[in-house]
Amino acid sequence: MSRWNGNGKLLAFAVVTLAAVGVRAEPQLVFPQGSDQPLAALQDIDVIEHLGERIPSGLTFTNVAGQPVALDALLNRGKPVVVTLGYHRCPMLCGLVLDGLAKATQAAGLKLGKDFTAVDVSIDPAEDSKLLEQSQHRVLELVGGGATVADWPFWLSTTDGAVAARTLADAVGFRYKFDPHSKQFAHDAVAFVLTPEGMISRYLYGVDYPPRDFRMAVVEAGGGRVGTSLDKLILACYKYDPAARRYAPFVMAFMRIGALLVFFALAGLMTVLWRKEIAMRKRVVPGPPRTTGSVA
């Protein structure tokens, strides 16, 4: 934690004037009282970002055919994985999230199955598998390009009462709750981008993803293995560190180089000018002639 406690006061005062040069924007990590877990739980509908963390292994779900499937099987295949959590009776958001992803895939010029894999996990323990199949069919048609069911599997959570889904949701910080009144799940519209190794790399909010953002998110998660060389070039300029979620070092480097160039240019100019001044002073004959107001 970068806040100072009382003991730091004197020291702070002593070195206070030296600090300016080293100052930069420090990220603030906040821990709940008596816990060393950053922000464990917000009992709310929300998304708590867990960038840079790994999703737990060993999670299993059920496919439409009723067979158990492991999330791990999608990982470590060299492709980033886009995960969505939702349910298919959902009157509004879930369908839009899926449609949004499908459209972004097309618009970004990415190929589902080749550049990345997607997976939709149902959070509803009472999911209707027919409805789920319909959704899957719809989005796959929307994606086009010959994408198959294997490229974008839709999984059920009917066998374990959605325990695995809840674990996955907790891991990515997706807080949802069941509203018994409306018999709906309350949740946010968000998709998660995982690296091929299962590390959380990006959160895509909303239902409409700008193609460039989407492409960058997938390319980044792929660690440069996806995308064209232009993408890689852009990435080199805009390096993204999932844990610190900052381009800051690169922006800072850009600024530092700029500022240093200017500083040295000015310093050079001043050196030349001052050397001339000193040389001039040496050459001046003492006692300049007293003038009568030459101009008036």
Binding site: S2, R3, W4, G8, A12, F13, V16, T17, L18, A19, A20, V23, A25, E26
Partner: peptide, 8 residues
């Protein structure tokens, strides 16, 4: 930003 920076 940190209290130390603020003081400086």
């Amino acid at each position: 930003q940190s209290a130390f920076n603020d003081g400086a």
